[in-house]
Design a protein around this nucleic acid. Structure first.
Length: 746
RNA sequence: UGGAGUGUAGCUCAGUGGGAGAGCAUCCCCUUCACACGGGGAGGGUCGUAGGUUCAAUCCCUAUCACUCCAACCA
């Protein structure tokens, strides 16, 4: 180990890059495929950032925490693997590339270039190129942060291995009848032109109206039913989406609602002008209807509302689809066909008003689902998609947590997990995108049968038609389908590798609570199903990083703090220490630059403490250590630790004092790392370093050091021992500066 | 609607059944031989509010208020 002089003060820019190179050259982060005798393994997979992404504060936090844990275990001698990689992030990446090509020129139509102008193959080539150019960016940024990832094992969700794992899983689930293709109600983004899973739709409050419409009651022949007073019988129905009445196939009331119960079994006329649109629909009874809300009567549109879909299924109602994928009313919508949904709403209201069928309008707050990506209102429509039948996968995943095979921290998230898992709906996994894993299903143009296979099939499994009759499904899989396999796909599955044997299940998953359902739950389900074992023992969920005012960082608010700028100016260690000490659970992290600067000062303090030690070894300070002992004390030939143990009783009181404090510090720091209370470790180390070591011990030691003789020598040994221990304890938190200081020691 | 979390000094946050803390900010002093990214000192808080348990509560219990987040099928 080289020793070298130190700069006058802590200047991270002078050594951080050099230190990381040193680690890489010495393969410090390489895991071994097999454990040495008696050695334990410790493994984590990185939550793969989007391949086109840029490191933000959330990444900085999760990767700092993970790095702390993995360095800690590595220093304890475990065979540690922290596996790096990136996610292809289907829709996000595709949107970025589409944006880029739109800027580049115009297509034949005179409009900006779209992916359709390029064609699938060229567009994908283009996206791969984009990936090559941008994918390394985040890799580089993780290194700046000091992340001790085993880069020799870097993976990508669309690389050869992950892709074959995806096909393997798809085929097996299909064979087990847990993947099916079906026409069902799904969320559709008219702008992105793709299906979305429930999770990709974000409910959001909108100011809207509640329109009260008249539905006349009729008999089975369509003749008006009269009230006792000879007026025409009717029900008023309140709706927030009047345009959907084009797809109404029933009116529902509560069975015990005295206002309406006598109409059950009769019919209601959907209030629209003639032209075939004015239909009669049955009046049905269901306790689902809330008597208190609106008028207490409900129109049922199975094709365009999830609840209505369920209701329709229960009552065997027709499913009348009136909205298309282009966000417009479909062809059979009479005078409304071709209109956008919003336009159709206006026209329906106008028409009804004219007919005197709109009785009342009131303001109403309600929730609409927005596309997670583009914030367009997502529409429930009927569409043919691929689904995972999730119940059989969910139950074991629930049990695994209940039985404690996986522990969440903070534990309170387990409740939320159960809640979601218990109400889970089948997972729509097909996306109408190009960037992603194309679905390994082929359709036969002769028999229309589906062939699902790991490779391109030679023939249709149903009619044996040759390959040229087969056409692969054009859709790709939801990005989260492949990330769900991440913990075992990256370790070599479906091959039975040593790596998999050694490192699965992984030890800890560290991530944000915002992706418990997207990612964590699916990994648990997939891991249990395909590996027969949980993918990780512990799930650590960290807090959200916010700005100083406690607001969420977002580009639009302009309050984003770029972690890399902090790394450039203050250094990676101060940022890491700040995040670590603020990462207490159950509280959001409000990042303030004052704190970062404070911990930069802390690094400087540590720096100077070591510098102080160096100075003591210089001849002008009263004698170098090379020829110093002259029999004053026994030399530490068997290492400092032994020496301290042997000579502890003989030492000066203040030397004993600092050793005692150090001894008390160690379990606190270890406990913090062990129990995912890293902030406690950081706090204790800060306190010890500054106030005990620097403020008291070093100040006091100056007397002994000046005194010379035995006092001086034993103090140098003690100081060195304490510094070495301290550097090791601090290393997981602030690896760069501790490494630099460690190497400086003679 | 249900669930969770938070509320402690001006700001950001630790913390514990018996003495109320740190960093930053403020004020004063100190360029003393590791460090001015420093040292010494000062001011500043009825630990959200109201009850209860206890010899004793900021910490435990109950209620209440405020803020935040999560889940959700009220058209």
């Amino acid at each position: 180990m080289p020793s070298h002089p130190l700069t006058p003060s802590f200047e991270p820019a002078a050594f951080e890059t050099k230190i990381y190179e040193y680690w890489e050259q010495n393969q410090c982060f390489r895991a071994s495929d097999t454990n040495a005798p008696g050695q334990k393994s410790f493994s984590m997979v990185i939550p793969p950032p989007n391949v086109t992404g840029v490191l933000h504060m959330g990444h900085a936090l999760t990767n700092t925490i993970q790095d702390i844990l993995v360095r800690w275990r590595r220093m304890h001698g475990d065979n540690t693997l922290w596996l790096p990689g990136t996610d292809h992030a289907g829709i996000a990446t595709q949107a970025q590339v589409e944006k880029a090509i739109a800027k580049e020129g115009k297509g034949p139509s005179g409009r900006p270039l779209t992916r359709h102008d390029l064609g699938r193959e060229a567009f994908l080539a283009r996206t791969w190129k984009w990936k090559e150019e941008h994918g390394s960016q985040i890799t580089f940024q993780l290194k700046r942060l000091g992340s001790s990832l085993d880069w020799s094992r870097e993976r990508f969700t669309m690389d050869e291995g992950c892709s074959s794992a995806v096909r393997e899983v798809f085929v097996r689930l299909y064979e087990e009848k847990l993947i099916y293709r079906g026409e069902r109600i799904i969320n559709w983004c008219p702008r992105c032109q793709t299906a979305l899973s429930d999770l990709e739709v974000i409910p959001s409050e909108r100011k809207g109206s509640l329109w009260h419409l008249i539905y006349k009651i009729v008999d089975e022949k369509g003749n008006a039913v009269l009230n006792p007073d000879q007026s025409e019988a009717q029900v008023v129905i309140a709706t927030t989406r009047p345009e959907t009445l084009l797809g109404d196939t029933a009116v529902a009331v509560h069975p015990e609602d005295e206002r309406y119960s006598h109409w059950i079994g009769k019919w209601a006329r959907v209030p629209l002008p003639g032209g075939g649109l004015s239909r009669t629909v049955p009046v049905i009874a269901d306790t689902y209807v809330d008597r208190e809300f609106g008028s207490g009567a409900l129109k049922v549109t199975p094709a365009h509302d999830f609840n209505d879909y369920d209701l329709g299924k229960k009552h065997g109602l027709a499913v009348l689809s009136v909205m298309g994928k282009d966000g417009r009313i479909s062809a059979d919508g009479g005078p409304y066909s071709g209109l956008k949904f919003s336009e159709a709403r206006e026209k329906v209201l106008l028409d009804l008003n004219e007919l005197g069928l709109l009785v009342r309008t009131e303001d109403h707050q309600h929730k609409v689902g927005l596309c997670q990506r583009c914030e367009t209102v997502a529409e429930p429509i009927i569409s043919k998609q691929w689904f995972v039948q999730i119940q059989p996968l969910a139950q074991p995943a629930i049990d695994a947590v209940k039985e404690g095979k996986i522990q969440f921290s903070p534990q309170s998230w387990e409740k939320t997990y159960y809640e979601w898992m218990n109400h889970i709906r089948d997972w729509c996994i097909s996306r109408q995108l190009w960037w992603g894993h194309q679905i390994p299903a082929w359709y036969c143009d002769l028999c229309e049968g589906i062939t699902v296979d790991r490779q391109t099939p030679r023939a249709c499994v149903h009619c044996q038609a040759v390959g040229s009759h087969l056409r692969q499904d054009e859709d790709v899989l939801d990005t989260w389908f492949s990330s769900g396999l991440w913990p075992f796909a990256t370790l070599g599955w479906p091959e039975k590798t040593e790596t998999l044997e050694t490192f699965y299940p992984t030890s800890i998953l560290e991530t944000g609570f915002d992706i418990i359902f997207f990612w964590v739950a699916r990994m648990i389900m997939m891991g249990l199903h395909f590996m027969g074992e949980v993918p990780f023992r512990k799930v650590y969920l960290h807090a959200m990083v916010r700005d100083e005012k406690g607001e969420k960082m977002s580009k639009s608010k302009g309050n984003v703090i770029d972690p890399l700028k902090i790394v450039d100016v203050q250094g990676a260690d101060p940022l890491r220490f700040t995040l670590a000490i603020m990462a207490g659970q159950g509280r959001d992290i409000k990042l303030s630059m004052d704190r970062v600067e404070g911990y930069r000062a802390f690094c400087n303090k540590l720096w100077n403490a070591v510098k102080f030690f160096h100075l003591q070894l210089q001849p002008q300070q009263g004698g170098a250590l090379e020829e110093p002992f002259q029999g004053l004390v026994e030399e530490p030939v068997e290492g400092l630790e032994n020496w301290i143990e042997k000579n502890y009783r003989e030492l000066d009181g203040f030397n004993q004092w600092i050793l005692l404090r150090l001894q008390k510090l160690i379990p606190v720091v270890e406990g913090g790392f062990q129990n995912f209370e890293i902030n406690l470790s950081a706090q204790a180390l800060y306190e010890f370093t500054w106030h005990q070591l620097c403020d008291w011990y070093i100040e006091f030691s100056k007397l002994s050091l000046k005194a010379g003789g035995r006092q001086r020598v034993e103090t140098i040994y003690t100081l060195r021992f304490v510094l070495e221990k301290l550097l090791r304890l601090l290393h997981p938190l602030i690896p760069f500066v501790t490494e630099e200081l460690w190497q400086s020691l003679p």
